[in-house]
Design a binder for these strands. Structure first.
Lengths: 342, 342
DNA sequence: CTGAAAGCGCTTACAG
DNA sequence: CTGAAAGCGCTTACAG
C-alpha cells in the first residue's frame, strides 16, 4: 500500500467500497451493485464481494450514498405530540417496520401547529428523505405543495379517504364517534354531552359523528358540546367534568374525545362523590393505558394505532421501492370496548 | 446558461453553493465560509453572499456537507423507552435545544436492552453524528468502546458522576431514594416496602437509597423488597399492591420506583377498600402527569428531566463546537413533593 | 482575507 | 453481465 501522500491526506480510516473492490478483485461499481442486490450480477461475484465486505467489516456511508443517489435512507415522520401515548404507539410500530428495512426515522413533532409542520417538513426535505409519513389529511396548502413538488412518497396516518394519488392508513373517526354515541344511546342515555380538548381535525370528526348520531335520535342540542382548545390532560378532564356536572346536572352521559380527559373525569367523580355510571356515564376514546384500571373501568374505543403504523410503513416501503400498492387507502376500523363506566 | 449537456445531465434542480457564488461574484469556497460564519471573511462580501443566498433560496445540502466534513448535523439520542413520559419530556427538551442550533435528532429506543443499544449506536455512528446523547452511565464495554473510538462527543443523561473525560447531566438517584424513605420515616412509618419493576440501573440506585435509609434507621428487612423485572405499568402497580397487602399486611408504607406503579396501587386500594394513607402510605417517583389528580393525590419526587435535557443538549452543543465545558458533571437535584398519600 | 485544486465515498448514465 | 468516466454538492488543506 504505497499510496502517494496526497492520496492519504484525508483518509478517514474508514473501509470504503474501493477497499472491498480491491480485495474482491472487481470494480467498485460491481461491489456497489452486488451489495445492493441491484440488477443481475454474477452470483459467484456476489459471493466474493460479500465475503470481502464481511471480512473488512465494510459499511456503506449513508452520506455518500445520499449525495450520489439523491435519496437518503431517512424517513421523516411528522406527528403532533409525543406526550400522547397514541402517537408513541404509532411511532414504535413505524420504527419496528422501517428499521429492519434499513431506514432511519427522523421524528418531527408539530405540536398541532400547521406552521411548525411546514417548517419541519421543509427542514426534513433538505435531508432528501426516501419517504414521508404525516399525521392526518388536513394541512396548509404550502405544506401539501412541498410534499407534492418534492416527489418523495408520502403516506397519511390515522385518517382515510379516497382521492387520486392519495395514500393513507387509518379509520373513520366519524364512524367511531357515532358508534360510541349509539352505544350510550343503547344504554338508555338521553342527554349525552361531548367534551373535547385540543380540537384537532380528528377530534372534530368524532364530534361530527356524535352530533350526527344524536341528531338521528332527535336528541341533539348545541349546548351539550363542551369544546376547549387547551391541550388534553387528566387535570383538564377533571375540570371539565366538574364544570359540566355543575352547570348541566341533567346530563346523563359524557363522551370525552380522549381517554386522558375521561380518566380525569372519573377521578373527579370519585372526589366529588358523583356516581358513575348511575348518575352519569363516562366514555373515552383510544383505550389508553390505565383506562381498564380506573374505578369504574372506562368504556372506550380501541384504535388500531399499532396496526396503522405498521401498515403505513409497509405501504411506504412499497412506494419507496417503486413497487405497486394494492390498496392506497386502508381502513383498519376500531373496536368499541364497553366497560362499567357506561 | 449554455452549459454543455454533460454538465446538466444529472442536474437536480437544486440551488447549489456554486449558483450562489456566481450570483455573488465570489468563489464557492468564500460562500461556504461566509455562510458558516467561519474565519474572517470581508463583512462586505458576507453581506453580498447572504443576499444572493436569500434571493436564490439556497439551502446547504446536509449529505454533501457530511461527506466533505465528515460530520453530519445529526445528533443520536438513545433512550430506553418512549412509553415512559419521563423520557418523552427529556427528548422534547433535547429537541427544543438542538433544533434551533441546526441539528437533527435521531432517536434510538433501546427497550432497556444493552445489545439493542449497541446495535443502534453502531447504526447511528455510520451516519457520522456530530454528537451522541445516551441514557445512564452503565452499558456494555463494547458500546463504550464504540463511543470512545468514534471520537464523537457524548453526554450522559439522568445520572451524574465524576470521572476524567466523562460528561453527564442528572441527579443522584440514590439520594432521591433516601430522601423519599426519610420522608416516610418522618411521617412515622416503620415497615416501608420498596416495590419496583423494570429493574434498570437507576431503579436499583433508588433501591439502594431506600435500603441505606432504612438500615440507618435500623429498620431494614430484605423481605420488604418487591422486585419485578416486568415492564412498569399502572396495571402491574395494582397487582403488586394487592400482593404486598395480601402477603404482608403489617407493611405501613410502600415506596414505588415509578409513578405509574403507584397510581395503579392507589386505584387498587380504592377497589379493595384499603385506606391510603391511614392503613398504608403510598409514594411514587418522577411526579408524572396525573399523580396530583389521584385519590388521594400521590406523594412523589419531581425529577428535573426537562432541565436535564436542556443542560445536556447545551453541553453537547459546546462539545460539538469545540468550546470548553465549564462543568462536565452537572447535578440538577430533585424535589420531594409531599401530597396526601403519605 | 481569498481562491484553485483535490477529495469525501458513493451511484448514475453510458458503453460494450 | 461488467466497467471507466463523470458527477452528486460540499469542505479541507495548502497557497498566496
Amino acid at each position: 500500500m504505497n499510496l502517494p501522500a496526497a492520496k492519504r491526506r484525508r483518509a478517514t480510516g474508514r473501509v470504503t467500497l474501493n477497499d472491498v473492490a480491491l480485495a474482491a478483485g472487481v470494480s467498485p461499481i460491481t461491489v456497489s451493485r452486488a451489495l445492493r442486490g441491484e440488477r443481475a450480477v454474477d452470483p459467484e461475484l456476489v459471493a466474493r464481494v460479500r465475503e470481502a465486505a464481511d471480512k473488512l467489516g465494510y459499511m456503506p456511508d449513508p452520506a455518500a450514498r445520499a449525495l450520489a443517489s439523491r435519496h437518503s435512507t431517512h424517513v421523516a415522520v411528522l406527528i403532533p405530540l409525543l406526550s400522547n401515548a397514541l402517537f408513541v404507539d404509532l411511532l414504535e410500530a413505524v420504527q419496528r417496520t422501517l428499521r429492519p428495512a434499513g431506514y432511519q426515522v427522523l421524528i418531527g413533532v408539530t405540536h398541532y401547529d400547521e406552521a411548525e409542520e411546514e417548517q419541519l417538513l421543509r427542514e426534513q426535505l433538505l435531508h432528501r428523505p426516501a419517504g414521508v409519513l404525516v399525521t392526518g389529511l388536513e394541512r396548509r396548502a404550502g405544506t401539501r405543495a412541498l410534499i407534492a413538488s418534492s416527489g418523495v412518497p408520502c403516506v397519511h396516518l390515522m385518517e382515510t379517504a379516497q382521492a387520486p394519488g392519495l395514500h393513507c392508513v387509518g379509520f373513520s373517526q366519524h364512524a367511531a364517534g357515532m358508534a360510541m354515541t349509539r352505544h350510550l344511546l343503547g344504554r338508555g342515555r338521553r342527554r349525552i354531552a361531548f367534551a373535547a380538548a385540543q380540537l384537532d381535525a380528528r377530534t372534530l370528526q368524532r364530534l361530527a359523528g356524535w352530533r350526527d348520531a344524536l341528531t338521528e335520535a332527535g336528541l341533539y342540542e348545541p349546548t351539550l358540546e363542551w369544546l376547549n382548545p387547551a391541550p388534553s390532560s387528566i387535570a383538564l378532564g377533571g375540570r371539565m367534568f366538574e364544570q359540566i356536572i355543575g352547570q348541566r346536572p341533567a346530563v346523563d352521559a359524557i363522551f370525552f374525545c380522549n381517554d386522558d380527559l375521561a380518566q380525569g373525569a372519573l377521578l373527579a367523580a370519585l372526589r366529588l362523590g358523583v356516581k358513575v355510571p348511575e348518575q352519569v356515564a363516562v366514555a373515552g376514546f383510544n383505550d389508553l393505558t390505565g383506562s381498564d384500571q380506573m374505578l369504574p373501568p372506562l368504556t372506550s374505543v380501541r384504535t388500531p394505532r399499532g396496526e396503522i403504523g405498521e401498515a403505513a410503513a409497509a405501504m411506504l416501503l412499497a412506494l419507496m421501492r417503486g413497487q405497486p400498492v394494492a390498496r392506497p387507502a386502508i381502513d383498519l376500523g376500531f373496536t368499541l370496548v364497553p366497560r362499567s363506566s357506561t
